[in-house]
Every structure is written in structure tokens, then in C-alpha cells.
Design a protein around this nucleic acid. Structure first.
Lengths: 234, 234
DNA sequence: CCTTCAGGTTAACGACCACTAACGCCGCTG
DNA sequence: CAGCGGCGTTAGTGGTCGTTAACCTGAAGG
């Protein structure tokens, strides 16, 4: 019903109770799923209990909506900023793509829970919110597709778009490697993901193995050069 | 509480009602989440209504458990079979890895819903089932780690394991590109995923870009330092 | 001192939902 | 025909959960 109370007497960058709730809710939703977490648990996580949350949010759905819309906006805004910055300094598409990759890695490492929710609980949103999130996601993907296509002009648009989604899957795998002693530290993880992502994109022009291993090429004929690229318009 | 009715009077390879239920349940769970689907919906999807499901399964949890354990077993068994086959014909590690990749791609394309559930609803399982699934997952990962380490002996084990998880994320991205007309066809999608996966692994020895792309150290501040960040994520 | 208001509290309500009970149909088998 | 077991059905039940209602407290303002 409402949404205003973000503004108090000051623009206060201090960690407000609202943000506290959002952070804990994100963590819990990522751990056990949106429907698997009760409002009492969220409240308990921030020291208040149950219905006290309704002084800050219209409902449980509103929390999820704010989380998903927020991360979509930040992802897109950050990507856009990096594209503009890197482009304005005269860097080529390779550097721009590198910057996008680095930015996404930072996101994936800093906000694991949100990255997880981002493609897991989208279906729980109200139609309007879901549309907004999807629109932002699409714009973000488009940033990547544009620069990757500039780097690999011989690849079809659909192929590039699929490759971008696949690399997202690669970068967003961070929640799965959280195990004890997975990697020495954040820097090493970031470096590894960076190399893997660049390697994946590089294969677009490399002419890598296009046919199943140890199987006579037969069903794969015509798949390497298939620029028909006719996305069926939504 | 029980689990016996798996064995009826015959091993009947025919598409039984049980399998029908499992298929529809997998689809619905993947679409709206385990808690987001009611038993009535699952029943309706196979033409019976609500509690009729309890003639075939002990409960909703049992369906999910059977789905997750089943796919874990099939993934591992298939991977093991491919490793043995490829190895026995004297192929090198590259060919073995190629076979693993192809097998995983087949899985990801044929059983999208299950691949999705596989890492999404694991937390909803009873402890014993979850342990079993995790054990199978670990064994499956180990198949990959072994062969990748043989291909890239200079990489550390933790690094290789993380890379394998990341490539799983890449290959499992299929649910995100399944939309109408995303790519010309299944063959093209498989070929693309294959190239991307091989490209990613190739970067392990390539010495790719190990440091952030040319960006004023500002957004990346504090990221180069090494906080041995180890979230306790259970 | 009185009011106000933000931000809590506990109690209760209503909806939903997994699961059970009790019953019915029908194709077997003897 | 009798009986039985597989497979459904509908009605009901207990519990959980999101949300609301009503009330309390403490600090700010005049």
C-alpha cells in the first residue's frame, strides 16, 4: 500500500532498520526459499518479532519485490556505468567486456544471496514487479550482447545471447563453492572466474569442438555456422 | 514413513502412473518451487485429484526425494559409465572430459526441470535423503575433478573443483534460454554449450587475464585484499 | 503535563494445505 | 458368484502462516 518511509529527517546513509531487515530476509530466502521462511524468522533475525515487520513493509511479498527490483537495478546501472566509462576512455570491446565481467564477479561475490534469489524466486512476484525485473534483466543482458557481438561479429545474435546467459550461469555459481576451504580467498576466486569467463567467450571465435566427443560428425552438420539468428520476438 | 511400493508385481517398463506423476511434479516444482505447488495441482496435472497421489507416494516430500535422488544417481552413473568407456578405449583425458561434457549437456537439455530442482530444493529433503544426494553429487564432481586435474596438472585441486562447479553452472543455464526460438535447435544449443565449456576449461592452463580489466581502482577497492572470507553457509 | 507518533508487543483470525478417513468402483482370481 | 485388492473419490482435520487488531512505551515538542 505504501512505500515512502525511506526518507526520514536526513538522507541518512546510516544502516537503517529497513536495510537490516532486507539483508536478513535475503539471506533466509536464499537459504530456504521464499515460501520456506516465515515472517517470525525474519523478525527474529533482526531482533524484533513477527508482525513488527509490518511497520516497515507492506508484507512479505513487498520485501522480496524490493530485493529483486533493487538488485536488478544495481546490476543494470553498474553494467551501464562500466560500459560508458570503458568506452569513453577509448577502450576496445575486449576491455569493455572485461569490465563487465569484473563487475558481475564483484556482484556475485558480494551479494551471493541476492544473485541466488534473482533467478530463483522471480515467479513469486506480482505481475508488475516481475515485469520490471525482467525488463531490467533484459537490458542488462543487452549490454553484454552488444559488446560480445562487437568482439565476435561472425556469431549470430541468438548464439551470443545464449552464450551470455551461459556465462551468467558460470559466474553465478559462487553460491555452490562456499564449502569449507573451497578456495584460498576472494581474490583467487575472482581471478578464476574471470579466466573461465574469458575462456568461454573466447571459444566463440576459436572454432572449438563443435561435435560430440568421439562421435562421427553427422547430426551436427550446419550448426557451427548458423547465423539464421531469428529470435522470435519475445 | 514408508517407501516400499517401488516394486509391484512386475518390473513393468511401461510408462506407469507413478512416472507420470513424477514427471509432472518435477515440472511444477521447477516452475513454482516445492512449497509453491499443492498436491491438488500435481494430481490435476495427471488427471486424478488431490489425495489420490497418496496411493503412489507416501507424501509430497517423498516425490521430491525420489526426484532428487533419482537424478543424482543417474548423473553419477552416467558419468561413471562414460569415464570407464572412454578410458577403456585408450582415449586420453581430453576425450574423457569431452564425453563427460557431452553427457552433462544431454542431461541438461533433456531434464531441465530436474537439473533446476537439483540445486534449488535440496534443502527441503529429510536429512538422510539430503545426505545421499550430496554424496552422489560429490562423487560426480570427483569424476570431473580427476580428469580435469589430469588435463591441467599445474592447477591446484581447489581451483579445479571450483572450475568444475562453475562449468556446471554454465551447462545448467539451459533453463534460462529455453524460451521460444532461443536458438535454432537442440543440436545448435548443445554445440554452443560444448564449445563454451571447453573454452572455459582451456583457460585453466592458458594463463588468461588474472587481474581486473583496466578500471580505476575504486569500485574494486578492498577486493584485492585477501579476507579469507569463509561464510559458514550450511 | 499532555499529545503525538514511530516502532514495538501479544492475541486472534482466516486461509491454505498436507494428510487421513471412509467409502465406491472394477477387474481379477477361485 | 464371492471376495479382494488396486486405484480413485469426497469430506474432514490439524497445523502452519500471513496478516490484522488492539494495546504499550518512550522520546520529542510546546
Amino acid at each position: 500500500m505504501n512505500d515512502a518511509p525511506t526518507r526520514t529527517t536526513t538522507p541518512a546513509p546510516a544502516p537503517t532498520r529497513r536495510e537490516q531487515i532486507l539483508r536478513e530476509a535475503a539471506r533466509l530466502f536464499a537459504e530456504r526459499g521464499f515460501h520456506g521462511v516465515g515472517v517470525d524468522e525474519i523478525g527474529a533475525a533482526v531482533g524484533i518479532s513477527g508482525p513488527g515487520l509490518y511497520r516497515h513493509f507492506a508484507g512479505k511479498d513487498a520485501m522480496l519485490a524490493e530485493l529483486l527490483v533493487g538488485i536488478s537495478e544495481r546490476l543494470f546501472a553498474g553494467g551501464q556505468r562500466r560500459v560508458i566509462e570503458a568506452t569513453s576512455t577509448g577502450d576496445g570491446p575486449a576491455a569493455v567486456l572485461g569490465s563487465l565481467i569484473d563487475g558481475h564477479i564483484d556482484f556475485a561475490l558480494d551479494d551471493r544471496a541476492l544473485i541466488t534469489l534473482h533467478d530463483r524466486e522471480l515467479g513469486q512476484l506480482r505481475d508488475s514487479d516481475r515485469k520490471q525485473v525482467r525488463s531490467l534483466q533484459r537490458q542488462y543482458v543487452e549490454l553484454w550482447v552488444d559488446v560480445v557481438r562487437r568482439l565476435h561479429p561472425d556469431s549470430g545474435e541468438a548464439e551470443v545471447r545464449a552464450a551470455v546467459h551461459a556465462v551468467f550461469g558460470l559466474l553465478n555459481s559462487t553460491p555452490h563453492l562456499g564449502r569449507p576451504g573451497a578456495l584460498p580467498g576472494r581474490t583467487a576466486t575472482a581471478a578464476l572466474l574471470r579466466r573461465l569467463a574469458h575462456g568461454a567467450f573466447a571459444s566463440l571465435s576459436d572454432g572449438g569442438p563443435a561435435e560430440p566427443a568421439g562421435i562421427p560428425a553427422e547430426a551436427t552438420a550446419g550448426t557451427t555456422a548458423d547465423p539464421s539468428a531469428e529470435p522470435s520476438a519475445g
